[in-house]
Design a binder for these strands. Structure first.
Lengths: 101, 101
DNA sequence: TCGATTGTTCGAATTTATACGAACAATCGA
DNA sequence: TCGATTGTTCGTATAAATTCGAACAATCGA
């Protein structure tokens, strides 16, 4: 896990990219979980999807500036980049988290 | 233009579907225009995209419950379903329209 | 050092979205 | 009725997203 993780500056994330990252049922579930609980490992879902798929979705969220991944031993702990995302897209995450599916 | 247009009940539109409809630069432009001005015809864009493409994007927005299309002579006039959409997804459209690209 | 744990990367298959020309349909005005 | 206007539908081509197994990499504890 040598290469440093790329956490984009939110200024470089477009609205379309942010919406696309959120426009997936699996990723919505991840975001909802991450909103409830910090420091989720990437395998928080592995009863449902294979790990290569999970890894893909975490990456999409990371590249859209929605989550920050911090290495912690053999895992990576994930947390929403709430403040930064809210500053870039005010109200968006709130409305997504408030919406019923 | 005989077949009646399908305007879904917002209760049947999922969050993922709504987000996917919005997660496209062309459709974001359309939604922004429609938010500024009611009764846009479908060809409001035709300097930029061919009409079959425009028709496609209007349909995606319609099926996501974002716009209502009303036949008016040879054209179809489009308007945002603001109230209904806001009720189903409170704050979502506001945040999208407020965001800079 | 060995094995277990955690997650990434690669490659490929499948699915889905986008784009657009051509033909068609509906309406209106002359 | 004819032609112009407006938009849909169809077919197809291209691009992008999703999925997943297999192999690999990094860390930790025994």
């Amino acid at each position: 896990m040598a290469p440093p993780l790329r956490h984009p500056d939110l200024r470089h994330v477009t609205l379309a990219q942010a919406l696309a990252a959120l426009a997936d049922p699996v990723r919505l579930d991840i975001v909802r979980m991450a909103a409830k609980k910090d420091d989720l490992p990437c395998n928080a879902f592995l009863q449902a999807i294979p790990k290569s798929t999970a890894s893909h979705h975490w990456r999409v969220l990371r590249e859209a500036g929605l989550i920050r991944q911090e290495p912690e031993g053999t895992q990576k702990l994930n947390r929403l980049r709430r403040k930064e995302f809210d500053k870039r897209f005010p109200g968006l995450l709130d409305s997504v988290l408030r919406a019923k599916r």
